[in-house]
Simulated scan of single mutants.
Amino acid sequence: MSPSRKLLVLYTGGTIGMQMTDAGLAPASGFEVRLRAEQAANPERLVPDWIFRELSPILDSANMTQTNWLQMRDAIVEGVERHGCDAVLLLHGTDTLAYSAASLSFLLLGLPVPVVLTGSMQPAGVEGGDAWPNLFGALERLHTGIEPGVYLYFNGHLLPGTRAGKQKSDAFDAFTESRRPTRGTRANSVPDALNYRHPRRPVVLAVQPLFPGLGAPQMRALLESGVQGVLLECYGSGTGPSADAELLKALKDAHARGVVLAAISQCPEGSVEFDIYAAGSLLASTGLVSCAGMTREAALGKLFGLIGLGLSQAEVESWLVQDLCRELAG
């Protein structure tokens, strides 16, 4: 909880630094100059000393990929271990902000400093906009001191990186903390096998919502596309088309080939508990693992972080059901 004394500001692009072009708002370089000018114009703000780094290329976050997450992870670790930074503020577009916050939560397990992600619904400089309040609000929180971990700061609220989600597309209070049920207790320490120092690699993942009419041919096509992990968004407490024997066989066959199968609930405040209904138990029998009350962003980030380590299917499944950074226990 010590106040930050040397902060890394990592700029990745997003609306916060966008400028108008003939095609509309687009990411723009040179944000450090604008940030320093804004700070100089408001010297009463309490912020840590900071250094600035801009990732290349800067992005509209709609174009964010796993490679960019790994690039962010590398820049953060370099800032901490080589340049002695004791906190990080990452500026990011809002479309995939929650996905990046969740993924970095697992990529940076054990990092001894806080990492806060923020962005804005309007570009910096817009009168009455949210860019400077979000950015300097996050800086002020870091100046006060935050426990190590990954967080998302927006509209005055500091949210856990694995429990945040974008709920609105045109309002300053766009992000909220998940109200999905939590269970279990948080691990007291991060196992060395999952430590941030271990390199990761990109992973082929897919998300498949269940819906009336989804058939075995579509499911099999997805599962045979080369995916290493699939996140199924089930009904309610973890049910699905369990009367479709061919669909269940497609899942079983994929699991036998080593594909990791994970499940979350489609309900905004739902949690997967397979044993409540027979339909859920039949799904679970295919090798599907419950991610309980995890959000989509957290479940995908966790799959990426675990499979990207090169762990076996059984090892990934074992860690999926253990709380590592508030994704399960809240």
Rank of each mutant, 00 (worst) to 15 (best):
M1P: 14
S2D: 13
S4G: 14
L8I: 03
T15G: 13
A28T: 04
F31K: 00
L35H: 02
R36F: 01
Q39T: 04
A41F: 06
R45I: 04
P48Y: 05
I51F: 12
F52K: 07
L55N: 06
P57G: 03
I58R: 14
L59C: 07
D60N: 15
T67H: 15
V77D: 05
V77S: 08
V77K: 11
V80M: 07
V80W: 11
E81Y: 14
H83T: 03
H83M: 08
A87R: 08
T94N: 05
D95T: 05
T96S: 15
T96I: 02
T96K: 09
L97S: 06
A98E: 12
Y99S: 02
S100H: 06
S100D: 11
S103H: 06
S103G: 10
S103A: 15
S105R: 01
P112E: 01
V113S: 01
P114M: 07
L117R: 03
Q122P: 08
G125W: 03
G129H: 10
D130F: 01
D130G: 02
N134C: 02
A138S: 06
L142Q: 08
T144N: 09
Y151S: 00
Y151N: 00
Y153I: 00
G156M: 00
H157Q: 13
G161K: 08
A164Y: 09
K166F: 01
K166A: 01
K166G: 00
K168R: 15
K168W: 14
K168Y: 15
A171S: 09
P181L: 05
T185E: 15
R186A: 08
D192L: 14
A193H: 02
L194I: 00
R201H: 13
V203L: 10
P212G: 11
G213V: 00
L214Y: 12
A216C: 10
Q218T: 09
A221G: 12
E233S: 02
G236H: 05
S237W: 08
S237N: 13
G238T: 08
G238P: 12
G240L: 03
L248M: 09
L251V: 03
K252E: 15
K252S: 15
K252G: 10
A254C: 11
A262V: 05
A262F: 06
S265K: 10
S265V: 04
P268V: 02
S271A: 15
V272G: 12
E273V: 10
I276H: 10
A278R: 12
S281I: 00
S285I: 02
C291D: 11
T295D: 12
E297C: 04
A299N: 00
K302P: 05
G305I: 04
G305L: 10
I307D: 11
G308H: 08
G310W: 11
E315C: 02
E317N: 10
S318N: 15
R326F: 15
